[in-house]
Design a binder for these strands. Structure first.
Lengths: 186, 186
DNA sequence: CTCAAAATAGAGTGTATACTCAAAATCTAG
DNA sequence: CTAGATTTTGAGTATACACTCTATTTTGAG
């Protein structure tokens, strides 16, 4: 009936190992052997806790997608400022998760079971940014707000990719400069 | 001594198949069997023309990287306008090549022999955009121009990713709006 | 303590992969 | 036409992969 502590800890170690490997080496670099080695576990233990490798990978990836776009804490709609700051602290505060999001979610978006889930996530994000922009810039039509939302999101993603390419890259600075300084209310 | 026409045509078919598959399915989806099936060739023929699978993949990827950042046609330095329009026509005019470039940029950028080559390419691009921006905006310091170059490139890449996610996405329109309207000379 | 349930180990399975090789087919220069 | 070189074939190899299974060990509630 009840699960044992050992199993729960092992499950967490496996999830952590999977997340790290996905961020470091991508999907094909994340083999079962690599996961088990890093988690300090044998294949049998893995399959006692997970149905398949895909099972563990999907858990990690779906968590990552959820972490980028958390539910609003307050009831009030979010401002563009809040959305951008949330993205910045996502990248800075959970770099492992962010790497998974950028590597797997985006690269795997055009194929496989992630494709659909990623497209939905993307539309949700655009809508959220778009409505914040529309609220703060009443002179824009709905279509114009949406285009601007897409551009802001594209810039944030692009900068995050650069950060992944070179960890020294000052993502925060670029992101704030790109979004606040030039684009809107100009 | 001399190569036969059949071999030259087969080589081209294999390169085309490799490029298409890399763009559609990424690196790990591009198996030898898939390449050979699409090119209408058996494994033995492939290895008569290429040293390894990696050989064919690297040819395609290096071509793609070269296509994004072609040598200037004139002696004169390029304007930001020209650089952006070149990127736009790269994406619109050679979508297969662009897809390879974008997919590999994410998945292969942090590891392997592609990592180094991708990083060098990135720095070359930033320098090129940066010097165009500096020339057209003399009030900016060198560091400021570079940051702006990174932001422009990030936005273009991010928009291109969105285009890859949804082929209907109007990349040209977004790219011109994002770069020309808001960012510089404001 | 006890003992059933849960977790683990580790050898083993089937499959897909990149790649090889010897023989047959095809090409093209002379 | 011919003969040597190139290209193609297709069965075959070794390896790495995800995954299974059974026996053993560990856990923790009663």
């Amino acid at each position: 009936m009840a699960r044992y502590q050992a199993g729960i800890r092992t499950e967490a170690r496996i999830i952590d190992a999977t997340r790290e490997l996905l961020g470091e080496n991508g999907l094909d670099g994340t083999t079962l052997k690599a996961i088990c080695d890093r988690a300090g576990v044998r294949a049998g233990s893995f399959y006692n806790l997970f149905e398949s490798k895909e099972d563990a990978v999907l858990q990690v990836v779906k968590d990552a997608i959820r972490a980028v776009d958390p539910h609003p804490k307050r009831d009030a709609p979010d401002s563009l400022n809040e959305l951008v700051e949330a993205y910045i602290s996502f990248v800075s505060g959970q770099p492992d998760v962010a790497r998974v999001y950028l590597k797997i979610a985006i690269s795997g978006a055009t194929n496989g079971s992630l494709g659909g889930s990623m497209k939905r996530h993307h539309h949700r994000r655009v809508a959220r940014f778009s409505s914040a922009i529309a609220r703060e810039n009443p002179e824009l039509t709905e279509a114009e707000s949406e285009v601007r939302a897409e551009i802001v999101l594209a810039t944030l993603s692009g900068l995050a990719f650069m950060w992944m390419l070179e960890p020294k890259f000052d993502f925060e600075h670029r992101a704030r400069l790109a979004v606040y300084a030039p684009l809107l209310n100009s």
